[in-house]
Design a binder for these strands. Structure first.
Lengths: 89, 89
DNA sequence: GGCTCCAATACCTTGTTGGCAACGACGGAA
DNA sequence: TTCCGTCGTTGCCAACAAGGTATTGGAGCC
């Protein structure tokens, strides 16, 4: 699992479309699609239902989304603190 | 920044030596040494003092260590939840 | 000075990621 | 039912990043 995968996952979950999420993240669809699948493979869980209209979060995906966001939040705080030592959480 | 860098950083901080940390993480010293420096470069902060006895955490490193651990904890929880939906935080 | 123990650098190899092109599945319109 | 548009996925290749071995450089110790 990588931070990139987590960021891609959150983007797809929020956009509901790989294509839209990929534009938002400034990458093309294929890499994003592959990373999402790689993430699912590693977790052993299907996070989205694929429909002709886009990607629909499953319950498993919804739960993982909450966790994924917390990882990114902590990462953000870590970066911020390094830049600005006066940070008080 | 990558999860690998964060894991390497925590290992070095805990071991106090790149060499010992690299053995613990089952990699060789050079990659770990490089990742630590890359992390410092990206953050724009020197996390360790290099001494002939090993790596000594600076204050900046100590603060970042706390944050880094939280990132890894959240990551762990994310993984666990995906595997075991019955998890209750 | 020579030895030991560190981390850092040089150089190469391998693995991973991303882009482009093409395909497959599904639904809507005529 | 046929055609078209909208999705995500797969194949293939190029670029980048990560890891390994060998080597260098610096600081203490005898």
């Amino acid at each position: 699992m990588s931070l990139t995968q987590i960021e891609y996952f959150v983007a797809v979950a929020e956009e509901g479309h790989v294509g839209r999420a990929s534009r938002r993240m400034h990458v093309s669809q294929p890499p994003m699609s592959r990373q999402i699948r790689a993430l699912e493979d590693e977790l052993g869980v299907t996070l989205f239902d694929r429909t002709p209209r886009g990607m629909v979060l499953r319950d498993e995906g919804r739960r993982f989304l909450a966790r994924a966001r917390r990882v990114l939040e902590e990462l953000h705080e870590a970066r911020r603190e390094a830049r600005d030592p006066a940070a008080e959480d």
